[in-house]
C-alpha cells in the first residue's frame, strides 16, 4: 500500500490526486472488513486517538469513533460546545493537556477556519480535520467521492451539482477540491446570496435554478441549510427556500434520466429535500453513511503509517 504525501489530513486542498486515490482504494478494502462477521482488525492496536469536538456533531463523531474502534485503536472523546476561548482555556492548552495523557492522534472539529492547520504546526501528533468552520470537511468529501465512484466508476468527466448553502458549507468547498482533482466537473446551485462570488475563478459553474442543475448533473449533492452558521440574514424564509430551491421526487422523476441523489446529513426534511426524494431510489444517502466509516478507517490507518 502506498503512503500519503501528508502527515495530517487538514483539507483536500493539501492532498494530491494520488493521495485521494490511495485513500479511496484503501477504503474499499476496509469496506470489505466492516461487512464481515468480525468487523475488526488490529491495525491501530497501539494507537490512542482523541476525538476533540468543539462543535456539536453526532454522525461525524460516531463515524470516527466506530472507524477507530474497528481498527482497534484506543479512543477518548472530548466535547465542548462553543469555542475554547469562551471557556477560558486556549485551544493549544486544551489539546496539549490531552496529548500529555499520551494520545497519538487528534481528530478535531472546530468552528474556526484553519484551526487544525494552526494546531498541526504546534503539536507533534497527527491531526485529522473533522470540519473547521466554513472551510473544509475532508473526510466528508472523501466519502462522497468514494460513494460516487462506487456508483458511477471513474469520476473523470462526470458532472456533479452541489445544491444549497454553498457560502457556509465546508462540505461544498472540500467536495469542489476533491472532485476537481479527480477530473469531475462541478456546478454549485443556490440562492445568489449563498453562492460565493469568486468560485467561477477556479472553474466552478454557477446556477441559481435547481431545475437547470438537476438537468445538467449526473450527481446532485444536496446540502443542508446551515441556519446556525449564518450570522446575518441571507434569505427571507425556509418556506420560500423550500419552494424555490427544495428538491422533490417529482422533479427527479421528470428528468429524462436517472441521477444520483446525495446529502451529507442531517437532512432538513421538507426544506432542501422532500421526504419522498430523500427516500427514493435515486438516493444513496445511507450508503454515504456506511462508506464514511470505511473512508475514515482508511484515513486513520494511512496517517498512522506516516
Amino acid at each position: 500500500m502506498t503512503k500519503l504525501s501528508v502527515r495530517h489530513l487538514l483539507g483536500i486542498k493539501n492532498l494530491t490526486e494520488n493521495d485521494i486515490h490511495t485513500i479511496l482504494d484503501t477504503a474499499s478494502q476496509f469496506k470489505d472488513v466492516i461487512n464481515r462477521p468480525i468487523k475488526k482488525v488490529p491495525s491501530l492496536r497501539d494507537i490512542t486517538i482523541a476525538n476533540v469536538f468543539f462543535e456539536n456533531s453526532t454522525r461525524t463523531r460516531l463515524s470516527f469513533e466506530l472507524a477507530e474502534k474497528r481498527l482497534s485503536a484506543d479512543v477518548v472523546n472530548f466535547s465542548a460546545s462553543g469555542s475554547s476561548v469562551k471557556k477560558g482555556e486556549t485551544l493549544l492548552d486544551t489539546v496539549n493537556n490531552i496529548l500529555a495523557m499520551k494520545v497519538d492522534m487528534i481528530v478535531m472539529r472546530h468552528s474556526s477556519p484553519g484551526a487544525p492547520h494552526y494546531l498541526s504546526g504546534k503539536i507533534p501528533a497527527n491531526v485529522v480535520n473533522a470540519g473547521d468552520g466554513t472551510h473544509e470537511h475532508p473526510t466528508q468529501a472523501l466519502l462522497d467521492a468514494f460513494s460516487m465512484r462506487e456508483k458511477l466508476g471513474d469520476l473523470a468527466g462526470k458532472k456533479i451539482a452541489i445544491i444549497g448553502d454553498i457560502l457556509h458549507s465546508r462540505v461544498a468547498l472540500s467536495n469542489i477540491f476533491c472532485l476537481q482533482k479527480l477530473g469531475a466537473e462541478v456546478m454549485v446551485c443556490g440562492p445568489t446570496t449563498l453562492i460565493p462570488k469568486y468560485l467561477p475563478e477556479i472553474g466552478v459553474r454557477v446556477s441559481h435554478q435547481v431545475k437547470e442543475a438537476l438537468e445538467w448533473c449526473d450527481v446532485a449533492n444536496v446540502l443542508r441549510i446551515q441556519l446556525e452558521r449564518q450570522q446575518i440574514k441571507y434569505f427571507p424564509s425556509l418556506r420560500e427556500y423550500s419552494l424555490y430551491f427544495g428538491i422533490t421526487k417529482a422533479m427527479l422523476d421528470n428528468l429524462n434520466r436517472e441521477i444520483v441523489l446525495m446529502h451529507p446529513g442531517p437532512i432538513n426534511r421538507g426544506v432542501e429535500l422532500s421526504s419522498d426524494a430523500a427516500d427514493s431510489s435515486h438516493s444513496i444517502i445511507l450508503n454515504q453513511v456506511e462508506n464514511g466509516v470505511a473512508v475514515r478507517m482508511a484515513v486513520l490507518y494511512l496517517l498512522a503509517q506516516q
Binding site: K13, P113, G114, D132, G133, T134, H135, E136, R170, L173, P196, K197, Y198, L199, E201, I202, Q231, I232
Partner: peptide, 18 residues
C-alpha cells in the same frame, strides 16, 4: 465588513474565511 477576517476574494473563499 461585519465578521470579516481578510480581503474578500478567491483566497478568502478557498480559506472559508469571511
Amino acid at each position: 465588513t461585519l465578521f470579516g477576517q481578510m480581503n474578500e476574494g478567491l483566497t478568502s473563499t478557498l480559506l472559508g474565511l469571511k
